[in-house]
């Protein structure tokens, strides 16, 4: 058992170190809540999605609010066969594309507004992964809107990050959407002081890594 654990631990570390290469936003946009997902969190997420649930390797995976693309790079490294990333912001999509070229992975990118109805046939993907805006700025409710869109797209499971403080509310929404919700992990999301209104150097936010599915 120890041996397996060490091997697993090494694979996760390797994934995280490869994700260090992925470039982040050059000039993040406050209204879009563009906080980059760290290599550590992206690695933990995709590693768990594959090793605990077999939801990545060989699958079609969509990334809503793809941003710089780190979750999709991690998905491809865990063996996803087809990836599509959605974002409203062309600047982010261009950074993402650069990251995908660097990592030598093929990803379809779509520029669209995820607050609108999705321009995609329902249930086109196996798995959806996302780090949605937390909806704490001027866009309250956007996190639940992303979740609703993601559930339309996925056949098997949706993986998402939500503030731990909203867990009860998200659980209620999951029930309304007819899916079960599982807390895969509790994470600390370090949000660096990227924006002028942040008084502190950085702030830790407690975040739930959630899995939604129909089982």
């Amino acid at each position: 058992h120890t041996h397996t654990y060490i091997q697993t631990d090494m694979k996760l570390k390797q994934l995280e170190s490869e994700l260090q290469e992925v470039a982040a936003f050059t000039s993040p946009k406050i209204l879009l809540e563009q906080y980059p997902t760290t290599p550590h969190i992206a690695a933990c997420m995709l590693f768990a999605m594959e090793t605990q649930f077999n939801d990545v390797a060989g699958k079609a995976v969509a990334d809503l609010g793809v941003g710089c693309g780190i979750l999709t790079v991690a998905a491809a490294m865990m063996g996803s066969h087809y990836n599509m990333g959605f974002d409203i912001d062309l600047d982010a999509l261009e950074i993402a594309r650069g990251n995908f070229e660097e990592a030598e992975i093929d990803v379809d990118l779509i520029q669209c507004n995820l607050a609108d109805p999705l321009p995609v046939q329902p249930k086109s993907f196996d798995t959806v992964v996302m780090n949605p805006p937390f909806g704490t700025k001027k866009n309250a409710g956007i996190d639940v809107l992303f979740l609703e869109r993601a559930l339309q797209l996925a056949n098997t499971a949706v993986y998402s990050l939500h503030k731990t403080s909203t867990r009860k509310f998200i659980a209620k929404k999951a029930k309304e959407f007819g899916v079960s919700m599982q807390v895969v992990a509790e994470l600390k999301f370090n949000i660096p002081a990227m924006y002028k209104f942040h008084k502190h150097k950085s702030v830790d936010v407690e975040v739930d890594f959630l899995r939604f599915s129909w089982d």
Partner: peptide, 13 residues
């Protein structure tokens, strides 16, 4: 954009 994506995309006008 691959033709797999074309097969999935739909107008949302």
């Amino acid at each position: 954009m691959l033709l797999l994506a074309h097969n999935m995309l739909t107008s949302h006008v």
